[in-house]
């Protein structure tokens, strides 16, 4: 799935002609097809082919979605967030910042889905939507930490300030997770017997295969989304950096095309450039890939 951005004909973009203009590449197209095929197989295995559990019945099928989401979101997503944050504080390049931002957003998505699927599973098996189980509590706190990270990213428009502060938050959030984990484990563990673990009960061969195949499938989906999200974030930065210049250049071109670039003409052109920057070609470019992401998110 790709969203192609048409460069505006009037704006001079020679310097960026080599830069990517879409969130997709040949790699993501191949990966996307693979992910889709794997997801179809995974759903067939999880929902139809694999047998129901002896104790949980069909509710166990939710685990084939729930556990891989938890692991890709919690480990892969938060791990990459930590790596990106450390990388940024060390190297100070946009790559690490955008990697952390993209990973954090996907971690938020997957953690949210983990909570939803966990609650849906808890209702038939535990009898309640919410149980103060250590892992559930940890996931909830992690979800809030990731919301905080996103809030920080939207709190300022200055890219350097945003990158630096969100890198610190990303690093702290990741460093806090083991402590929260330990505290909630003790908190509940001291007063409650072990919770139901799908791996405690002996899984039969097909169930085990479905389980691990689901893990791999979600990891592939995660990588596919990550590449798209990263490229979108990168394009966003480019748009933010160039939109004003482009708008000014475009207005100048209009003024020249209208002829007689006298003193009044150029003054008018400069005046309108600032005012129309928000609705110039820059924002048109910005909305196109944004629509692409929403679609990506929905497809997962």
């Amino acid at each position: 799935m790709t969203t192609t951005v048409q460069p505006a004909a009037t704006a001079p973009r020679a310097t960026r002609s080599a830069a990517p203009t879409s969130t997709g590449s040949r790699f993501t197209r191949v990966l996307g097809v693979v992910a889709l095929a794997m997801l179809c197989l995974q759903l067939a295995l999880a929902l139809v082919i694999s047998p129901p559990d002896v104790l949980q019945g069909d509710a166990v099928r939710l685990f084939y979605l729930h556990v891989p989401m938890a692991i890709t979101g919690g480990y892969l997503g938060v791990g990459l967030l930590a790596i990106g944050s450390i990388g940024y504080l060390w190297k100070r390049t946009a790559f690490w910042d955008l990697l952390a931002a993209s990973a954090a957003e996907l971690a938020l998505l997957f953690t949210g889905l983990t909570l939803v699927t966990g609650s849906l599973w808890g209702r038939p098996v535990w009898g309640t939507y919410w149980e103060w189980d250590p892992r559930l509590t940890l996931t909830a706190v992690l979800f809030l930490l990731l919301i905080g990270y996103r809030a920080m990213r939207s709190a300022t428009l200055d890219p350097h300030l945003r990158a630096r502060r969100s890198a610190v938050i990303g690093l702290l959030a990741a460093a806090d997770v083991p402590l929260i984990r330990l505290s909630v484990d003790w908190w509940r563990g001291l007063h409650q017997t072990a919770t139901i673990n799908p791996l405690d009960t002996a899984l039969d061969g097909l169930m085990l295969f479905t389980f691990f195949f689901s893990m791999v499938t979600f990891a592939v989906i995660f990588v596919w989304l990550l590449v798209h999200r990263f490229r979108l974030a990168w394009l966003d930065e480019q748009v933010a950096a160039h939109s004003l210049e482009d708008a000014i250049a475009e207005r100048r071109a209009e003024a020249e095309a209208a002829g007689s670039p006298g003193p009044t003409g150029s003054a008018g052109a400069t005046g309108s450039a600032g005012a129309s920057a928000a609705s110039g070609p820059g924002s048109a470019v910005a909305t196109a890939p944004a629509a692409g992401t929403t679609h990506d998110g929905g497809a997962s």
């Binding site: 930490l145 905080g148 809030a151 920080m152 702290l172 929260i180 505290s183 003790w186």
Partner: peptide, 21 residues
């Protein structure tokens, strides 16, 4: 930041969950 009053509780309170517990 312009949003500091509202951002701080969101960032700070979940992080200190271990202290609370």
């Amino acid at each position: 930041l312009r949003v500091r009053e509202t951002l701080l509780p969101l960032l700070f309170l979940p992080v200190v969950a271990p202290v609370m517990i």
